[in-house]
Amino acid sequence: MSPDDFTASHWYAIGRFADFPEGLSRPLRLLSQDIVAVRQGKDVKVTRADGRPCMVQARYGHVWTTLMDKPRALYDMPEFLEEGRRLVTAGAIGVLCSGLRAVENFLDMAHFPFVHTGILGIEEHPEVEKYDVSMDAERDEIWATKCCFFQPMAAATATGGQITEYKYRVPHPYSTILYKTCPIREGAWDLIGLFIQPTEEDACIAHSFVLVFDESNSDTSLLHFQQNIFLQDRMILENQVPRKLPIDPRWEMPTRADASSIAYRRWLKANGVVWGTAKLAEAA
C-alpha cells in the first residue's frame, strides 16, 4: 500500500549526520520504499531506487528527507536555539510495530508504574489526573498540558520521588516531544523526543533525543537512561496486537487517561491517515 497524502507529505529523520560516513552508501527504508543515503562532503545525498534525488535537510541533530517534491514545512522547535542546552541522541532503535503505536505509547503516562517500574512510576501511585488536550489549529498539532504524575526517579538528574509536570507535543504524525519540568532549573523544561522513521506500515526505527539543562550527567549516563526506558517500551510495542494502530474507536477501549491517545487517533483520521493504521475488518 502506498502512503496516504498526509503521511507522504512530511519530512522524516533518517539518522544523525555522523551515521553517514564519507563515501559509504547506506540503503535505507522509508514509507515502504528503498532509498539510498550517501555522504558527500558536508552534505548527505538521498536518492530513490530509480535514481531520482530526494530533498534533504539537517535539523535538530538529524538528517531529514522526504519522498515528496513539495513537502510541508518541517515543524519548528525553537528550544534547539536556546543557550545552555545539551543535545544527546540515544541511537536508532528498530521496533516491529507501526510508528504510530510508538508515538501513542510515548504520549501515555498510565503505563509508567507497570512498564517503567521504580523509574517513571510506582504501582502505589498509578493515578492519572485529568489533563488538558488541545489542538493548535494554526500549526495543525496536538498539545497535552497539565500532565502531572508521581515519579520516583523522573530523570537522570533526579534524586528522589516527585510529582513531575509534563507537556506533550505532537507536531507531525511520526514525531512527539515531551516537555518535562527541569529538576535543576526553576521554570525551565527539558525536552525528550522521538523522531520516527516509518520503514513499513508495521515497522519503524525510533531516533530519540534529549535536549536538557544538565551539567552533572555524562552523555553516556543520559543515553543509558533513555535507552533503558525505550527498551522497556519496545517490549510492549512489539507485543501489541495488531502491530498497526487501530483508529476506529470501536476497536480498542480507551479511558479518561487516554485523552491524548484519543486526540491523536482523531487527528490522524481527520487528516486522512490510512498507512500504518489497522482496519476494523482486520480485527480478530
Binding site: A110, P113, V115, P126, M235, Q240, P246, E252, M253, P254
Partner: peptide, 26 residues
Amino acid sequence: NRCPHRGMRLSYGIVRENRLTCLYHG
C-alpha cells in the same frame, strides 16, 4: 491474547490470586 484496552498480549500479564493484570497499564 490481547487486552481490550490497547491490544497488549495478556500472556505477558501478572497473575495475582485469581485475577490477571495486563503488564501495560495494570
